[in-house]
Write a protein that binds this DNA or RNA. Structure first.
Lengths: 337, 337
DNA sequence: CTTCTCCGTGGGAGCGCTCCCAAACATATA
DNA sequence: TATATGTTTGGGAGCGCTCCCACGGAGAAG
């Protein structure tokens, strides 16, 4: 049987209230008593029961992290691992625990309800980038504090953290343009994900800034995956691009394969730039120029901001956009610019 | 304010006991009453408070998943993402939730104590492959049910799930040998991780089976990472291997880079085989022959077995070893064998 | 018509904690 | 000495649920 507060109290010859006080750092305890209690707690490795505490206090110091499974494709990439790492590390540092839910699309609605109303978590971080996500609605109805990773297009009044996908793409394409490329193609990401949309807009921005026309044949719609990178690049090739900006490294790498298969060289014939900076980007030949996002940091800030919202009870939305950084390597053919 | 059992009871004109009964599927409720209660629950989206239930029942239907941060290097690889996915999916299907802890090395001890004694979780899955892990000891002292991913060398009486690393490595090296390679080198993994040790033993097994000598110059100790793959391969090259078995795909890919940098060809001059089957293994050129482990499945089985242990209260250890599968691609130069 | 079951239901007790009020004691002030 | 003030401590109530015992009524058996 595991010990209770009362057991410890008996051993110390004090009341459970006093033990509770020393555990919770209440100042109104004499130094002598505190020491006695602390020793016994130490000795028996006592930990107060979380369920009981949660019930009595009305909060649990647990954060929910919800990752929609719909975005399965991304699961192979380090995105979620890094996000989880960021959230978890910061939570632990602030003495919170994290509850993880990979929301299955079909059960999603039922599951979300369960999460939101059973009082298990004090707040939720939702890593959803889908446009049509119903989670948001449920979230708003419940009064649980929550934080979105990736802004939601229709709800600018919510708290979110996001990467400047548009700015990152803009930088990438601008870099290509400044190094003299004139027929810059793009392989876009899914256009029902904010990230996909924004990266495409960054591409457009860069062209517009230099008054260059958007050539429809040089735009191929992908979905972030390997396969779509292959197909898109094959579709692009006949239109003689001299550079390609892909909305994910995975697609960029697939594109490079296609280019090389057709006897062309990267970057000499066609420059390639990706997005994400996955680990292999720096390992392949030629190394891939890409746009890096501070995902772990975003996870950490999400956790810390949500905890602040919970503890201060503040209701005004927190919004932050993190800069994306262009990492210039060899695949763009313009290291020093 | 969120609703309580009693509120629902009032609305239905019954007692809280009756509401509790219908929620918990007790048979002793008349069909009429059940319907009334069910309707009200539905209407208000009522969910019983988990903390209260946990306190009253003595268990929480929450599983802990502990991943030591010490094995940071692996975090870039899909291993943990897939493990998490497997665990999470199966847990959710069985109506359990999962609590995730990335155990920081320094706080590890304190944190583990907290997890084990605060009654938050009904059991723990520990993804630890380190030899000298103190977690195991703490785990045994507490009486919490737990499950290890990766067997522990010193504690064969515990419950664990593991991949047949040794057999997988054996298959890989044997394949190389059967295709006529005679100077098969290896880049090992960390020798304080079970997986690293077993994969190296598999290499030795394959040589022994054919009465081939172990040539010390053809064995380089790596640590699973990119960098160590580079260094090791450079060290190996002067000793003229005609094949390399690397204990991770990441190292295998680094080795291929080195080989190519020195003007040699894969697989013609040197065949390469990796371990893990990370996504990029099938994307690089030449595609990488490697050993695949069913990680997601292992996560799922771990969850389901642990839940069974919890619910049956059974105390005898459950142990399972999953086969690793050789995936033959181009880097070994022997697709059809 | 009475007695015995059995089914459906209500309510008390208790899970282990926190919070609050009051008691007990010590110290300072009139 | 009497009163006010402050510090330390104890114990009751309550968080929202489950579990168990007991009670009333319907039907079966005597």
């Amino acid at each position: 049987m595991t010990l209770t507060l009362e057991d410890i109290a008996d051993m110390c010859g004090v009341s459970r209230s006093t033990v509770s006080r020393v555990i919770n750092g209440d100042l109104n305890v004499s130094e002598r008593t505190r020491q006695v209690v602390l020793d016994v707690i130490q000795k028996y490795n006592f930990q107060p029961n979380m369920a009981a505490r949660g019930l009595a206090k009305g909060h649990t110091r647990i954060l929910g992290l919800v990752i929609p499974k719909g975005v399965q494709a991304i699961f192979e990439e380090p995105f979620f691992a890094m996000l989880i790492k960021g959230v978890s590390t910061r939570c632990n540092a602030l003495d919170y625990s994290v509850m993880l839910w990979l929301a299955e699309p079909d059960y999603e609605r039922r599951m979300i309800t369960k999460i939101l109303y059973n009082g298990l978590v004090d707040g939720v971080i939702v890593a959803s980038m889908l446009m049509d996500d119903t989670i948001i609605d449920s979230l708003q109805q419940s009064k649980l504090p929550f934080m979105l990773i990736g802004r939601h297009p229709a709800h600018s009044e919510l708290s979110y953290l996001d990467v400047d996908n548009r700015g990152g793409a803009f930088q990438a394409v601008t870099h290509l343009l400044r190094s003299g490329r004139r027929r810059v193609a793009t392989i876009t990401g899914l256009q029902n994900m904010i990230a996909g949309i924004h990266r495409y807009q960054g591409y457009l921005d860069a062209l517009h800034e230099r008054d260059l026309p958007v050539i429809p044949e040089l735009v191929a719609e992908g979905d972030f995956t390997d396969t779509s990178g292959y197909i898109s690049m094959q579709r692009l090739l006949p239109h003689k691009p001299d550079a390609v900006f892909a909305a994910s490294d995975t697609m960029a790498m697939a594109a490079m394969q296609v280019i090389q298969k057709y006897g062309l060289r990267v970057p000499d014939d066609i420059a390639v730039v990706g997005f994400d900076d996955i680990p292999e980007a720096s390992r392949i030949t030629p190394t891939l120029t890409t746009v890096r996002q501070p995902i772990t940091r975003i996870g950490a800030v999400a956790a810390e901001t949500l905890i602040d919202i919970i503890e201060t009870g503040s209701t005004l939305p927190r919004q932050m956009v993190f800069p994306a950084e262009l990492v210039v390597r060899n695949s763009c053919g313009a290291v020093n610019l």
